[in-house]
Design a protein around this nucleic acid. Sequence first.
DNA 1: TTTGACCTTAGATGTTACTCTAAGGTTTAT
DNA 2: ATAAACCTTAGAGTAACATCTAAGGTCAAA
Lengths: 144, 144
Amino acid sequence: MHLLNDNLGTVMRISELARRAGMSAHTVRYYEKVGLLTPSQRTESNYRVYNKDDVITAEFIKRSKECGFSLSETASLLAIKNDKSQHVCAEAKQITQTKIIEIAAQIENLKKMQNTLTELEAFCCGGQESAEFCSIISSLEQET
Amino acid sequence: MHLLNDNLGTVMRISELARRAGMSAHTVRYYEKVGLLTPSQRTESNYRVYNKDDVITAEFIKRSKECGFSLSETASLLAIKNDKSQHVCAEAKQITQTKIIEIAAQIENLKKMQNTLTELEAFCCGGQESAEFCSIISSLEQET
DNA sequence: TTTGACCTTAGATGTTACTCTAAGGTTTAT
DNA sequence: ATAAACCTTAGAGTAACATCTAAGGTCAAA
Ligand SMILES: [Zn+2]
Ligand SMILES: [Zn+2]
Ligand SMILES: [Zn+2]
Ligand SMILES: [Zn+2]
């Protein structure tokens, strides 16, 4: 039986949802398994059926990930989104601020690495001579 | 039987090596399993025995990790360190440059996240009112 | 009607780097 | 002698996030 003659464009199966949200169907099923994205219906033959709201949810997840939120943090944000009247701004802002701090720490750490590596690199000739006196290797060997 | 009466200070068991290199004994065994750090001997009762060179290797691994190298990249660097005459500076420099580029990309990505999050956060009141009009949630919901 | 695209499930696999457990043997100090 | 502290192994578990497989069912079109 055809899925949705009178719903064309508003209702879709997994591949179309995945395409629209920019993820694979595999990933969509995975998100369902971990409770992030449940299809609103099933066909008689048990195919997942998604609607416009599901697309919004899928895109929400996508953007949340792009902002650096983990799936578990995304779940918290989705819970707010899905029942806004039962949640307050403070919750969303808290999650966001925590993430900002976390990312700042990661950036700091990477910058330190970057500095160390740049120093290491600067003194290495990078030529075809033996690594016997390579500054990169000897810096890693000895402390300070 | 006592381990090493005539070797005190130069030879040690796993806990001492771990302590000196700032890692757990578990982790040392793990590094052995993946081929990074093999004890130079075993006692009669099969305890791992490490010497000064092993400490240097363990510290090498530690510093390499702190520079952002993965265990597999660390393995390549260790291979150079352990047979310097058969390797050239170009190899070490190549690994280092690749890592520098990789880290730069990570920093860029995190900075983008940071900017996005900071924008999201700026417009959210963070108060105890309903999340109905929360700018964080609605930004994640809609595109652009 | 048959091909090919699409869908279903449970569950295995992959990555990176550990971290821990169980069940037991060894060493050292009191 | 016995307890505390240490060691051994194989293998399971963790985190985060998928990714893939096998074995099969469904659907639309040529
Ligand atoms: Zn050189
Ligand atoms: Zn060099
Ligand atoms: Zn508000
Ligand atoms: Zn808000």
